[in-house]
Structure formats: structure tokens, C-alpha cells
Amino acid sequence: MKKTMVALAILLTCMGFIPIDAANWYWIGADSSGGQWYIDNQSAYKSNGVAVVWVKIEKEDGTYILFQEEITRDRKRAFLQSVTYNANHEPVDSYTVDPWMKQYDAVTPDSMGEVIYNSVW
């Protein structure tokens, strides 16, 4: 009985640290250089007029970039973090903005940023 309780406790503890939701990439368009843009519907969330979303840009050479940004209901965007991967799906670069350095810029009309905005709001 004691072994069963310990095994159950370990299982429940591990379950809290294992992500069970896979990304759900939704294609939103292509840019002028052939990059294919996607939004992860699984991880996107909205609260109090602010949405946080992961975006993936797949390039023709097999490399891709994942980045996360905040988008406000009043058409402002702030970059949060990014990871660049090579064609073998290995991370080659990453960047995270410190929260106090976060800067909001206007959503540019007729840009992929506007496509992201329209997809979220």
C-alpha cells in the first residue's frame, strides 16, 4: 500500500511538469520573401484587452522562427521573446525582452502584423 501511494504521488507530481498541450498552428499568410506565417491557437490567450500569441515563420530553406508578442485591442504590439531554429529543428538563437524594456508599437497597416492583429481580434 505504501509503495502504491508513493508511486501515485510521484506520478501526480510529474504530471504537473509535463506539458500535455501540443501546438496548434493556424496558417495566416505568406510574406513577400516566401516565409509562411502561423499562429498557435492552442497557446493564445486574451485578458483585459491584451492578447499574447506565439507566431511561427517558416522560411524556404527549412529554418524557422518562433516569437511571442502581446497585441492590444487598441492596435499596439510588443515583442516578448523569440527562438530561431535551423533546418534540423535545433535552436540557434534566442532573445527575451526584459519586462521593463517592453516597447509597444502601432500595428502597421497592410503588414503581417495587421494579419496577426485581425486573426486575434
Rank of each mutant, 00 (worst) to 15 (best):
A9M: 07
I10K: 08
V107W: 07
A7Y: 08
C14V: 12
Y38N: 08
N24W: 06
S119Q: 12
Q36V: 14
W37I: 02
I57W: 00
I71C: 05
G62M: 00
D61N: 08
S32T: 15
Q103K: 06
Q42I: 04
S47M: 07
D93W: 10
I39R: 05
M101P: 03
Q36G: 10
E90C: 09
S82I: 07
D110Q: 02
Q81N: 13
S33I: 13
Q68N: 14
A30L: 13
N48E: 14
A22I: 03
K46C: 02
Q68G: 14
M112Q: 00
Y117E: 00
D93C: 13
V83R: 01
A30T: 15
R73T: 09
L66N: 14
V120A: 00
I28S: 06
Q103P: 05
R77P: 11
R73L: 05
T108W: 03
A7P: 05
G29K: 06
V92W: 01
A51K: 07
S111V: 00
Y117S: 04
Q42E: 03
D74C: 04
V120W: 06
M112R: 06
Q42F: 11
I39E: 00
K46E: 10
V92R: 04
K76E: 05
G34F: 01
D21S: 14
Y117F: 09
T72G: 08
I116D: 08
E114T: 00
K2D: 08
W54M: 13
K102W: 11
Y85W: 04
E60L: 14
Y64W: 12
S43K: 08
E58G: 13
V107M: 01
D31I: 07
I28Q: 02
V52P: 10
Q68E: 14
S82D: 06
M101F: 13
V6F: 05
R77S: 04
I20W: 13
C14D: 14
T4V: 15
C14T: 14
D31K: 13
I116K: 06
F79T: 07
L12M: 02
A87K: 06
M5H: 12
L11W: 11
T72C: 02
A106R: 03
M101C: 11
E90R: 09
R75Q: 03
A23R: 12
D40H: 03
S47A: 14
T63E: 02
E69M: 08
D98G: 15
K56D: 09
V6W: 09
F17I: 11
M1Q: 11
P91V: 03
G34R: 08
F17H: 14
G29Q: 07
A9D: 04
T13H: 09
K46M: 07
K2G: 08
A9H: 09
R75I: 04
L12W: 09
N88A: 06
F79G: 09
E70A: 00
V6R: 08
T84Q: 15
A22V: 01
R77G: 04
A51I: 09
M15I: 14
V83P: 11
P109Q: 01
L66M: 02
S32R: 10
W37Y: 12
P109M: 10
K56A: 06
P109V: 00
Q42W: 03
Y64N: 05
L12R: 11
A7K: 10
W100T: 15
L8E: 10
Y38A: 13
K3V: 10
K2R: 15
V83M: 02
